[in-house]
Structure formats: structure tokens, C-alpha cells
Design a binder for these strands. Structure first.
Lengths: 209, 209
DNA sequence: TAGATTGTTAATCGATTAACAATC
DNA sequence: TAGATTGTTAATCGATTAACAATC
């Protein structure tokens, strides 16, 4: 059953993966699955799967297993994917463009409302029909349009400053691609994607295995 | 001192972060730092910092601390950043292009030798002077040029197939951006970047904090 | 030398796995 | 009902933190 105990981040990080596998099962027309079968597919132990899910409630049925469609829906709700999120992307370079396209085509609940840039050559242009505005308008726009998420796709030197502006303008979450660890107020959620850290850990493993 | 005990992935994942902070310190002209001072900056406990570093050897000096430049260099070597890596990127869409530019400008040790595409409109074009070739040439090219790393920037449906080809052609590591968990032979290192998983965990935290 | 700080062992904490009673 | 499989408690394992002797 649901409790008030804080759920560890390790658990949260596994939820999207459960969801992906459940989606695949659903596509294949599978409508029930046991923790053991799921374990074989996904690679976590059956015990861990049951523990993870029971952090949020008893979604299974003894003697039967889990209903694939129901569990998929439950996990989606836990993650907040039943809601919509308005987003702005700061930095309209390749990465900003890539994320714009990606969310535009694949993530219906996450809507890119506008991009922001300092480079005058890009300002006024459009990506997927979404306008690129001057960075000077960032705070005003974000406040006015009740933006939920700010996405930072700019070099690290100005990243903290932009993050501060986004927080001031009322975003509830920041998705950071700049190579710097941001400091945010407690009430703003932060997810950092450090691409070069990821590449470096790949390099490490290439020299051992 | 260095041992043969397997070093946990948690430790490896922290190394690039140490390195980033040491780089900043170096820029500021700081030449020595204690585990306590570093702890205050980076947010890990001093105890953890000393434990982490001692997995690889005694880089410090009692009563003094750690030499910033030396430690930076040691960590770089541990990660394998003293070596060069030849890479190919499969998928020349926005993300493939973003990574090409990114590594081209910022990661001197990681060289994008070629991109590969199935879209005939893109084949023959260039990004940063790097040619986009037909995916049909992937195996031959990769073998011939002794490519070390394959980067997968294509939709999930063909990702495993491309990964198999890259492994067959002899890469030692794969950096995967497709939304699927790849299965690779043991001797090929794998680093997965699941962008939507990251976005979903952000959504989760936005609805709790 | 005295003070500072590491390297390393021991203690604690948290996460994973195992076991099994509850129950569909 | 009997068999299967969950939900949940207990045991184990591993990672983090604390403590302190070694030593610069």
C-alpha cells in the first residue's frame, strides 16, 4: 500500500524502464505477466520488481500476476505522465533543435512552447513551427505562459544564470544539458544529463573489459 | 594502492565529476586541495572522496592534501582520456549532428570519423567536414578504419541490428541514444543515454517536491 | 616537533535478495 | 480446492560514513 516513506531515487529511475517493457508487452498483445517473467525480460530480480511496485501500491493479484495494461497505466500516473507540461528550451543550437524535434514527435505530454537564443542569426526563426525568441524575453515569456519546465542547452558558463532566471520566472523543473552542476531552490526539480560524463565512463569501461 | 578488486560503477560515475571540479580549480589557479575543501565544493563527503580515490592509489599526501594538477591528470588517465578514440555515428538527424558538433568542438580525444544514414537526402552531405555515408557501408568502413566507438542515434526499432553490425565490425564500445536496452557481447562496453527516461524522472519529482 | 590530513579499518546505513505467509 | 504468485517481513549484501592510526 502507499506510504509516506520517501521513495529512493534508485526506484524512480527504474520506473521508466518498467514502463518501456510493459509498452512492448502491450504491443505484442500480452495482457498478464508475473514478476518472474518480467524479471527474465528486464533483468531485475523478481523480488526487486515486487518491492519496487509495492512502494506505490498492490498492483498485482496473488496467483495471477500483473495486468499489463493496468500496470502500464499505473506507472505512467506515478511518473506524472497523465499530465501535460509546457516547456521552453534555452539554446537553439543542434542540441536544442534535436530535443525540440524529439519531444515534438514522440512526447505528446511535453510541449515545447518556445525556444530562446542569444545568437541574432537564429532569433526569429522557427523549428517545427516553434518560434525562436530573444533570450531577453525569457523571464517575461515564461511567467506569462506558465511554463512548467525549462530545458538548458547552452554552454556551461551562462547555465547557472539562465537557471536562476527560469526559477525566478516560476518553472517547477529544469532539464539541464550544460556541463555544470546547477544549484536550484529546493522546490524546483532538477534532472541533469551530463553527456561527456557518460562518454567518459564508456571510455573507462573500454579499457578494462 | 591499486588492487584487483572490481571497482563499483558508482565510483566510476563519480570520476568525471571530480575531474570537472578539479579542472575548474586549476583554472582558478588553486594548486592544492584537501578532501574536506573538495567535499564542500562537490557535495560528496570527505570520507567518500578519500575512499573513491584510494580505489586507484594514494594520490594525496598526509598533512597536505591533494595536488590539483596531478589529481586531474591521474583521473584523466584512469578514465582513459589520455588515449584517442575513433568513432562513427549512425543516424545523421539532429541528435547525430548535435553530437558530431559537440565532440568536434569540445572533445579532442574523441574523433568522429564518419556518419552513416539510410535517408538518401542526407547521404553524401557533410557535417563539420565529416562525410555522411550510406548505412550499407557501415561494417566495411568500421572494420577498415579500426573504429573504437559506435554511437547510435537512430529510432529504437533498428538499434539492436545496428549494434550487432558495429560489434561484428569490431568496435570496443557503444554509446546508445536509442530508446531500447541493447544486448552486447561481454567484451564490448555499453553506455546508454535514455533521454526520455531522464525526462520522466524529472516529471516524477515535479509532482512531489 | 606539532598540526594537518591522508589512507584504511571498522561501524552504519540503505538497498537488494530471499523466504514465506496470505490469498486469489 | 490446489497451484500459483503476490505482498511483506527478514536476511544479506554492498556502499557510505565515521573513526583513527600513520605520516608528511
Amino acid at each position: 500500500m502507499a506510504h509516506n516513506v520517501k521513495i529512493s531515487n534508485a526506484v524512480i529511475k527504474r520506473l521508466p524502464r518498467y514502463r518501456r517493457y510493459l509498452k512492448e508487452l502491450q504491443k505484442k498483445g500480452v495482457d498478464k505477466i508475473s514478476s518472474n517473467e518480467l524479471s527474465r525480460l528486464i533483468g531485475y530480480t523478481a523480488s526487486q520488481i515486487r518491492q519496487d511496485l509495492n512502494n506505490f501500491g498492490g498492483f498485482g493479484q496473488q496467483g495471477y500476476g500483473y495486468n499489463v495494461a493496468d500496470l502500464y497505466k499505473e506507472i505512467s500516473t506515478i511518473l506524472g505522465l497523465d499530465k501535460q507540461y509546457k516547456m521552453v528550451i534555452v539554446g537553439a543550437g543542434n542540441l536544442g533543435q534535436a530535443i525540440t524535434n524529439y519531444t515534438h514527435y514522440y512526447k505528446s505530454g511535453f510541449i515545447v512552447e518556445s525556444l530562446f537564443e542569444v545568437n541574432p542569426k537564429l532569433i526569429g526563426g522557427k523549428i517545427n513551427g516553434i518560434e525562436i525568441r530573444d533570450c531577453d524575453e525569457l523571464v517575461e515569456y515564461t511567467e506569462k505562459h506558465n511554463i512548467d519546465i525549462g530545458i538548458i542547452c547552452i554552454p556551461k558558463d551562462s547555465a547557472q544564470e539562465v537557471a536562476d532566471k527560469l526559477c525566478f520566472a516560476g518553472v517547477r523543473g529544469i532539464w539541464n544539458f550544460a556541463q555544470v552542476d546547477l544549484e536550484l531552490p529546493d522546490h524546483v526539480a532538477l534532472e541533469e544529463v551530463h553527456l561527456s560524463d557518460s562518454l567518459y565512463s564508456l571510455a573507462y569501461h573500454m579499457n578494462r573489459e
